[in-house]
Simulated assay, not measured.
Amino acid sequence: MSGALIEAKGLSKTFPGKGMFRKSKPVQAVRGIDISIARGEAVGVVGESGSGKSTLGRLMLGLMPASDGSVTVEGRPLADFTGGEWRKLRQRLQIVFQDPYGSLDPRRRIGAQIADGIRLHGRGDAAQQVAALLDRVGLDPAHAQRFPHEFSGGQRQRIGIARALSTAPDFLVADEPVSALDVSIQAQVLQLLDGLRRDLGLAMLFISHDLPVVAHLCDRVVVMYLGRVMEEGPAKPIFHRPVHPYTRALLSATPRLHAAQRTERILLQGDPPSPANPPSGCVFRTRCQYAVEACAQVVPDLAPFGDDGRRVACIRAAEIS
């Protein structure tokens, strides 16, 4: 993508097998993923647990080394940043975690935790900026002296967002940021993230298992299954007319308010295969109602489909769409 702030090409991650007496097979958590995000753009990544979503996010932040492929920031590979350059880059890449309580130190006041990034990177008056950040995320600046346990789950997630913003990042990974919150609070936090993304021009990778939330918040959607991308493209077309059988199944399980939008529930058989022993050919074929013999032989390319800018990894996409 031209003008991308951050871009991954052929990104893969394989974890070595574990075992006390006998090693298990390596686990291919992410396999050959291409993704690019421009300034101010939000890209959502959805899929079941174990699909590789969080691993992808951590790879793009440089929190773990890739087994293959590369991540570039404004065209420069992460591997080229060393020493002081890497420290400056860390300011620009931040994350909001799933667990708003576990990601905070219960023994430290929240103002001090938000101030860490400001002080570490020499960004000026910490107390003044902490107050401004708390106000920006909808919290009372006077509460900077409180401890995490004195806040609700939604408030703690706002604190986590303020801490991520403390270094003035360009790129933010939001890893299931509302899944641990009550439904009534989720919309408020999502609205906050969306507003910050637009106001600050943040590039955002929003990870979730909830496709409608991603479709509402994000410009583009990446649907992952067993480390691979099944379907990718603009959010609205994928939400309203999914093509890949896996995307269809995910959407069919989502409640819809309007009868015209409701579809028959597609029940996937069994659990996802082990990433240590994936099926041959298409990794989704063992749970796909449209699978044929050729699906076991061919690894489908993520190929352009239709005229709405999407790509689909399915050899039968034209037949079943």
Rank of each mutant, 00 (worst) to 15 (best):
Q91C: 08
I238R: 08
G195Q: 13
V45P: 11
L217Q: 11
G233T: 10
V312H: 12
R108H: 08
Q128N: 03
G3N: 11
I6R: 11
M20A: 11
V71M: 13
V178Y: 09
R256T: 06
L302G: 04
L89N: 05
R285D: 03
Q261Y: 06
P234L: 13
M224A: 06
L226N: 06
P141H: 01
D68N: 09
M224V: 14
Q128T: 05
Q98E: 03
Q186M: 12
G111V: 06
H121Q: 03
N277W: 07
T167G: 09
V27T: 06
M1H: 08
I33R: 05
I238M: 15
R31Y: 01
K53R: 12
V30Y: 03
K53F: 08
D99I: 01
P237M: 14
E264P: 13
M204C: 06
F171R: 09
V243A: 05
A115I: 07
L181I: 07
L267H: 13
M1E: 09
I320K: 13
C314E: 09
T14C: 10
C218R: 11
V45G: 04
L172C: 06
I266V: 15
A127M: 04
L267F: 07
P169W: 09
K13S: 00
A42Y: 06
E232A: 12
L139C: 09
H240N: 15
V299L: 12
A38G: 08
Q98R: 05
G195M: 06
A294Y: 11
P106Y: 04
C314R: 14
L205T: 01
K53M: 10
S179E: 07
A131M: 03
D175V: 07
R92C: 00
C295I: 10
R316T: 00
R156V: 00
S70P: 04
G195F: 07
M60S: 02
T263I: 13
F171K: 15
P100R: 01
I315A: 06
P278T: 08
E176M: 14
A127Q: 14
G154H: 12
Q157W: 04
G124I: 12
A180Q: 06
R285F: 03
F151R: 14
D170Y: 00
R107Y: 04
V173M: 12
P237K: 15
V243W: 08
T263N: 15
G309P: 14
Q186Y: 04
L165K: 10
V137G: 03
P141F: 00
S280A: 14
G44N: 11
E48M: 07
G44E: 03
Y225A: 14
E41T: 01
L61Y: 02
G47I: 00
R123N: 00
H149F: 15
D219C: 08
L192F: 07
P100I: 00
G233W: 11
